[in-house]
Design a protein around this nucleic acid. Structure first.
Lengths: 123, 123
DNA sequence: CGGTATCCTAGTAGATACTG
DNA sequence: CAGTATCTACTAGGATACCG
């Protein structure tokens, strides 16, 4: 862990890799850009766009949310009621990260979603 | 794999995640932005910025380079001489991707490299 | 509703040794 | 020089069951 920390300091790209490692982190942040969402809403949201694949298991979602919270990208708000209500929202840091995902999305749509992406590979 | 493919089509962010999965892919592309590099040069380049951590093993580097080639981001050029000389360079697609890494780097430098990153976490 | 606790599996990266 | 072959350790992710 101490080793990983020094890697963080030396290379922002490596740090980014570490931060968004995990299948759903980027998409969670992206989903949260429109406002706070509850646990279950995030879960359903991740179903959209997954093209019929299995839904995320609670264990994994929980871990990713915790990691994002520890990264300081999102914030957890527990309403302390029964039945439970918990909302997640972007922090300032998280909001500052949205444009980066935007750039990723834009590039991905142009170069990854279309069949033309292959033709582009030549040269 | 067919499942992964449909995921690619439905979500560019997921596709991006898949494409750059691997510890070194982003950094390799970034290193290549200044021009073609030989296998060994890439390897040494990955040492810089790794903060004294172990160097990448040939097996891993080889795999990442192959994956990047199959993604169409880089291009392999074998000079067919003895001793071997192989150069890797960005394709057009790869060059179009550089600004995205730039955005990632900029953000990372502002929010991940400094100790202030933690203070930022508080909403 | 919003999680945890266990168990399991597949894939990723590292060590090490060897080759055209 | 630029890789491949083999083997091992670790971890991310999924299945399933249960809890406050």
């Amino acid at each position: 862990m101490a080793k990983a920390k020094s890697a963080l300091r030396s290379c922002p790209v490596a740090a980014f890799q570490k931060m968004i490692s995990g299948k759903y982190k980027l998409r969670i942040v992206w989903d949260l850009k429109d406002g706070p969402r509850r646990y279950g809403e995030i879960r359903s949201g991740l179903l959209r766009g997954a093209a019929g694949s299995a839904e995320i298991t609670p264990r994994v979602l929980s871990r990713e949310l915790k990691a994002l919270t520890e990264s300081g990208l999102i914030d957890r708000r527990d309403f302390g009621v029964v039945p439970p209500k918990v909302e997640y929202r972007l922090t300032r840091k998280g909001r500052s990260f949205v444009p980066v995902i935007s750039a990723i999305r834009d590039w991905g749509e142009r170069h990854l979603s279309e069949p033309a992406a292959l033709a582009d590979a030549a040269e």
